[in-house]
Design a protein around this nucleic acid. Structure first.
Length: 911
RNA sequence: GGGCGAUUGGCGCAGCGGCUAGCGCACUUCGUUCACACCGAAGGGGUCGUAGGUUCGAUUCCUACAUCGCCCACCA
């Protein structure tokens, strides 16, 4: 307990032998029993620190990357808690999305059929057949609600292994505050958010050509695209001019020839100027198409003149739109060629070729077309191989096609420049750690080319809370959606019925029909700040926690999770969702390759934790700065383990000394007071001075989210404290020297104050070992993790203006004495009968102040003579300088202490 | 093609317009079991990717290049 000027400790019996084993189990249970990390929620926003924790994908696999970034966040949480904040640190589970959908399908052998109604007695055909691949035809159909229930059931199992890991790692999460992204609250927030967007005109639907994945048969958004290299062939095709001559185009997609609507060249291209305004006929099909000019046509690409099809790529779409071209679509949603012969193909020969390719995949259709072209002589030369970059859905393995469909969009600045600027301003307002990551945000927002497509033609996910009226003639009136009242949310339109309608009217003339699309998973994830803070629930939590303080996340999802969250909060709450964001780096394997499942180099987090302990693994993570990639390095974990053990040993030692009186009798008093007023010796005051500086610097670093720098400062001083200070004051603290009672108390007090401070300084990093040593000192006073973060001012006032350089010079003097023995290859216990130390005058004064401690620690039995450094000594020490003053200053700054004449005694006799 | 980051002893990383470029691991030598062998002490080892420039002075700032990683754009 800290009071003004002193710290009272309740000492508990110390173990004979210390170790880090067992600490994790011991303290995780205590923290759980005592609800050490529970959010209190009884103070206002300024006293709360709230964290928008990333919900891990529960169907995904655990790997050390998880440990890495979640440790960084936990360090922040623990630090802020010690700073007095009521820390709101929830945990979410992401079970909304394709990976979970697939996992549920395979695990239970089920699939969603939105035409089915909820069946409360539904039983999946089997359960828990990991690895057994179920043929899609054998999956049993169930309603979406039944599927979601199975998903929640399975997620609960998956979650457990994540939770076990987080607990084991010591994450100070408040487990009472957890959520699922497919859970009821998340669905309600996502649907309510969407309806509010709709009311304000920010969400809209549109029938338009868009990127489409033929495997998953869904539209995909710009944020889900991935460019990949894709092999192909250039085919040179002859189109026929009216004068009987040909014009040649090059294409990698000859199978789209039936969908050709125009040939297009650059308006400045002399080669084709004469052709603009004329028509040509297509090879094989003989369809007449115009030759048109458009500035987007590049003269040096291919033949300089392109075939515009509806639709081969996004350029086709812009030509089609700008030049008001007809739509001649031949691709079906499953990626196969439409089976109906299009009405624009009129020649019998063309119809026959089309019939051969209908129903085929684009790949097979291409073969048909190429063979036919070769036969007709309209393919010039052999196709030449090429590699091009093509858009893929990030989870797909076939190139995206362009399909016209009705979709829901949300304004995100992709089309509205004013909104785009507002979102850029939000990005400028947000504090990125590290700062250079904001460039990625700006790049992304600047490069948006469309609004956010939020509808997906999938079955598992949060449904759009909408129905549409069915007209008398059976047609669906998409322009006047039926909207539920907010108090009904969440709803599923495929099982719930709009107000004023009855179930019997579903899909009937004059009735209603459900919107069967679901929302993009990011449409839900983008609202995690609103989900965790209970937005619009009027239970008081929102006001205490929103806008949040921190969003930790991966750098790979800046364009998705981070950006979409800012969009939603900007539109809904007119605020940034959080003030700061922490971006973690990647984990690289020892060969500097990014760890990923596909590379097969993933390390399961349990392994290093079992081997080195949670504190050690956390130490490894904590050594890496935010945004910097880290190598998986067990060597670093060993160092963490060593540090943890050193903390135990040093604390045990110092506390044991403190309990012995001058005659080595154990003092059984369990309570001691480390009164700052008792720090009377200059060396002890110097330690307090340095501690104060260390706290000040570490605190500043942590406030800037630089946990690695703070750790390095604390750790460096801790080792100096052990290797130099403890060694120097050992004997004085024992009272075995001829020092005064007060000098002994001063040493014991300083050791106590120092170790008490180290326990707290290391607590965010090494929560288990620090909790252990804290309880040796402060049993019955609660957790170190709710203890106050050390105050630099407290230790500074103890120093009485003693400079911390006194500690450095005393340490350097001790090192000089050790060097004598090390070079003489004798034991450190060998006495030095007499010695001369050379140092600058300032250092001599400081050594004089701690001379008896130095003599004791160095086993100097006779005189220590202090003398000035000579010019040759500076040179010998490698110093350079033009003036004597400069050399003196350099020697003082580097604590140069040399030894001259010395007489060694007899080494102690070995037993 | 545009951009971001990295490049420092064998390895993993700090650092910074000038202090003798630090730390840990590994290495060498020595010691020790009375806090700690899950230990201690002392020591060796780097012309800071390359080439220019700014400066009295560059590992640090600027320019170009190289290598590695990543983001964005690129389908005729």
């Amino acid at each position: 307990m800290t009071t003004d000027g002193n710290i009272t400790a309740n000492l508990t019996p110390l173990p004979d032998k210390v170790g880090v084993e067992g600490l994790e189990d011991k303290w995780t249970h205590t923290w759980d029993d005592e609800q050490t990390f529970a959010f209190q929620g009884d103070r206002d926003r300024t006293s709360v620190y709230s964290i928008d924790t990333p919900p891990p994908t529960v169907s995904g696999h655990l790997h050390v990357g998880h440990v890495f970034s979640y440790t960084h966040t936990d360090i922040v949480a623990r630090y802020k808690r010690m700073c007095g904040y009521d820390v709101f640190y929830p945990m979410g589970w992401d079970d909304n999305g394709l990976p979970t959908e697939r996992r549920v399908q395979n695990y239970y052998g089920v699939r969603v059929d939105t035409s089915l109604k909820y069946n409360p007695d539904f039983k999946p055909p089997f359960e828990g057949t990991e690895g057994k691949k179920v043929n899609a035809r054998d999956q049993v159909a169930c309603s979406r609600q039944n599927f979601i229930e199975l998903c929640e059931k399975l997620s609960a199992q998956d979650e457990q292994q994540f939770k076990d890991l987080w607990v084991r790692l010591g994450l100070s999460v408040d487990w009472k505050n957890s959520y699922h992204t497919i859970g009821k609250r998340a669905r309600r927030v996502a649907q309510k958010g969407f309806l509010r967007n709709l009311q304000r005109g920010e969400a809209y639907q549109k029938e338009a050509p868009g990127l489409w994945d033929v495997t998953f048969q869904t539209a995909v958004a710009q944020a889900e695209l991935e460019s990949r290299e894709y092999p192909g062939f250039y085919h040179k095709l002859a189109f026929h001019k009216t004068d009987g001559t040909d014009v040649y185009i090059e294409t990698t997609r000859p199978e789209l020839l039936p969908a050709c609507v125009a040939l297009i060249a650059n308006p400045n291209d002399e080669r084709y100027k004469d052709l603009f305004g004329t028509t040509v006929t297509s090879p094989l099909f003989g369809v007449e198409v115009p030759v048109l000019a458009h500035p987007a046509a590049e003269m040096d690409k291919g033949a300089g003149i392109a075939m515009c099809c509806t639709f081969g790529d996004v350029t086709d779409v812009s030509w089609w739109r700008d030049l008001h071209l007809p739509t001649r679509s031949i691709l079906m949603r499953n990626g196969r060629i439409n089976t109906e012969i299009p009405e624009w193909i009129t020649s019998p020969q063309g119809q026959e070729i089309y019939a051969q390719m209908s129903g085929k995949t684009t790949f097979s259709a291409r073969t048909v077309i190429v063979d036919a072209l070769q036969e007709s002589g309209e393919l010039i030369g052999e196709p030449s191989a090429t590699t091009r970059m093509t858009n893929f859905y990030e989870k797909g393995d076939k190139p995206l096609e362009i399909i016209t469909s009705r979709q829901w969009y949300l304004h995100n600045g992709g089309t509205d420049l004013k909104l785009r600027q507002e979102l850029l301003n939000r990005g400028a307002e947000l504090k990125f750690h590290p700062d250079f990551m904001r460039v990625r945000y700006n790049n992304w927002v600047d490069g948006l080319n469309s609004d956010w497509l939020i509808s997906r033609q999938r079955f598992f996910g949060v449904p759009f809370p909408l129905w549409y009226p069915v007209q008398e003639n059976g047609e669906i009136d998409y322009d006047h959606p039926l909207i539920p009242t907010e108090d009904r949310l969440p709803i599923d339109p495929t099982s719930d019925v709009p107000e004023g309608f009855a179930e019997e009217q579903r899909d009937q003339p004059c009735g209603f029909t459900a919107e069967t699309d679901i929302m993009d998973t990011w449409a839900t994830s983008s609202m995690t700040p609103q989900i965790v803070t209970h937005w619009d629930e009027h239970d008081g939590l929102f006001e205490k926690t929103f806008p949040m303080d921190l969003r930790p996340q991966g750098q790979d999802i800046i364009r998705t999770w981070l950006f979409s969250s800012i969009v939603r909060a900007h539109l809904e709450n007119h605020a940034l969702p959080w003030s700061d964001t922490n971006l973690s780096g990647w984990i690289l394997d020892p060969d500097h390759k990014k760890m990923s499942k596909s590379k097969g180099n993933v390390v399961i987090p349990k392994e290093p934790i079992d081997k080195f302990g949670a504190d050690a693994v956390r130490y490894w993570a904590a050594c890496a700065k935010l945004g910097v990639d880290a190598t998986y390095d067990t060597g670093q974990m060993k160092i963490g383990r060593r540090l943890a053990i050193k903390l135990l040993n040093a604390t045990k030692f110092a506390l044991a000394i403190g309990r012995e009186d001058k005659n080595h009798h154990v003092n059984d008093s369990s309570q001691v007071t480390w009164d700052a007023a008792n720090v009377t010796e200059p060396l002890d005051q110097a330690v307090m001075a340095k501690l104060s500086t260390v706290i000040r610097e570490a605190t500043a670093a942590l406030d800037e989210y630089d946990h690695a720098h703070a750790l390095s400062i604390i750790e460096t001083f801790f080792w100096e404290f052990c290797d130099d200070y403890i060694e120097l004051v050992k004997d004085r603290a024992y009272g075995t020297t001829t020092c005064s009672e007060q000098a002994m108390i001063s040493a014991r007090t300083t050791l106590g104050l120092g170790l008490d401070a180290f326990a707290r300084l290391f607590a965010p990093y090494l929560p288990f070992v620090t909790e252990e040593i804290w309880h040796w000192m402060h049993d019955g006073e609660g957790s170190v993790h709710t203890a106050p973060w050390p105050s630099a001012d407290f230790y500074e006032q103890i120093t009485h203006s003693t400079a911390e350089s006194l500690l450095d010079n005393a340490g350097a003097a001790l090192a000089a004495l050790r060097k004598i023995k090390s070079e003489a290859k004798v034991s450190m216990k060998t006495p030095i009968l007499s010695v001369t130390l050379k140092a600058v005058p300032q250092a001599q004064r400081e050594i004089q102040e701690s001379l008896s401690d130095i003599a004791c620690a160095g086993k100097v039995t006779g005189d220590i003579t202090l003398t000035d450094l000579q010019h040759d000594d500076f040179i010998a020490a490698g110093l350079e300088g033009s003036t004597e003053e400069e050399l003196q200053q350099k020697a003082a700054d580097s604590f140069i202490i040399l030894t001259a004449e010395h007489v060694l005694g007899e080494p102690p006799v070995k037993k």
